[in-house]
């Protein structure tokens, strides 16, 4: 048995609402059999249309080629199959819902009913019984009487998850004895003395005269390709990527070491010192480099100093020169770790 009653006939305890009930207004479908019949037809039509749309879905799936592209204003160039499958399945599902709700609104009773609530707290006797049971259990187990058992149990329960923490250690297999620690790994890149600077996509070495004043090139070390094949990952690329820009040597205000530019060509890490996005938005007039992720701005004419934004460190600069064939090379690795800061960085 439920304790519901039609709203209004219940002598409800009107705690907050010292007002009478609002009279129930009958709907057209309650009073006019024609309206009820019409609603019945509407609901059934929606369900029927849903069935037809499932068939339409199958027809579309079978007949439309997946590579057919159509142009639809606003939506642009889109795959016809995706659109038709979405339309047919979406509408067939939607109509089931619309039919059910129309049915509920027009044909099912719209009289609100009242159900009483009960306080969430258990009655006092239940609480007393629970307490008595707890006391009995405590007494029978002797939990209070055997302090050594109690304490060792608590200790054991506290410690038993610890092996799980150890098991997580090999999520990274590096850093064991003799191997480099994370901070050492983060502090070194593939750049070393005499390493040629090559264009990042083509791996072509670069001569100073290839780069006009105001020009910018994204570059990587020549040994990167070999390293990527050996390691099978992009880790080295993520640290070694640089950008080369050329400016009038007299415009260079400061750099991170004496004579680190070559005839006005400067090389900076491409990885933002904020949280590590690659940077490529360069404004040649101001020599500013802008990170597209969080808008940290660095001045490449002034040792990569932070001009604006959330980055706290200069962009690391790479000392460069030319080898005996006249190609641009690095003179050393970066003097500081590239990319975002980390605890051990100092």
């Amino acid at each position: 048995m439920t304790d519901i009653t039609p709203h209004g006939s219940q002598p409800a305890k009107l705690g907050h609402s010292p007002v009478a009930d609002v009279p129930h207004v009958l709907r057209a479908t309650d009073t006019n059999p024609k309206a009820a019949k019409r609603a019945e037809r509407q609901v059934a039509s929606m369900f029927l249309l849903s069935i037809i749309l499932v068939i339409a879905f199958i027809v579309c799936y079978v007949t439309i080629d997946k590579d057919t592209v159509v142009y639809i204003p606003v939506f642009g160039e889109v795959a016809l199959l995706t659109i038709m499958l979405g339309l047919t399945s979406g509408l067939s599902i939607l109509l089931i819902g619309a039919g059910a709700i129309q049915w509920a609104k027009k044909l099912m009773p719209d009289v609100e009913v009242v159900q009483m609530r009960h306080e969430m707290a258990s009655p006092a006797d239940a609480t007393a019984e629970a307490a008595a049971n707890y006391e009995r259990g405590k007494e029978e187990s002797g939990f209070a009487r055997y302090p050594i058992i109690r304490r060792t149990l608590i200790g054991a329960m506290a410690l038993f998850p610890i092996p799980a923490l150890f098991l997580l250690r090999d999520l990274w297999s590096g850093g064991l004895s003799g191997k480099a620690s994370p901070d050492e790994i983060l502090s070194h890149t593939l750049w070393r003395k005499g390493e040629r600077i090559v264009v990042d996509e083509t791996y072509q070495p670069i001569k100073p005269e290839d780069l006009p004043v105001g020009g910018l090139v994204s570059a990587v070390p020549a040994n990167l390709m070999e390293e990527q094949e050996l390691s099978g990952n992009l880790d080295a690329r993520g640290k070694a990527a640089i950008i080369l820009v050329r400016m009038d040597p007299t415009e260079i205000v400061a750099q991170q070491g004496d004579g680190w530019d070559y005839q006005g060509i400067v090389a900076y890490s491409k990885i933002c010192t904020h949280v590590g996005c690659p940077i490529a938005l360069y404004e040649q007039r101001t020599h500013h480099l802008l990170c597209p992720c969080h808008q940290s701005t660095f001045d490449l004419a002034n040792a990569g100093a932070v001009v604006f934004g959330p980055a706290a460190r200069n962009m690391p600069q790479l000392p460069i020169g030319v080898d005996n064939e006249g190609y641009l090379v690095a003179l050393d690795d970066f003097a500081q770790p590239v990319g975002p800061s980390f605890w051990e960085r100092g």
Partner: peptide, 20 residues
């Protein structure tokens, strides 16, 4: 009927938007 129907409405609208 209302809540069950509403599931199909939400589902159907997501399918329409996903397709279009």
């Amino acid at each position: 009927a209302k809540a069950g129907g509403f599931f199909f409405i939400v589902f159907g609208i997501i399918a329409l938007v996903g397709g279009l």
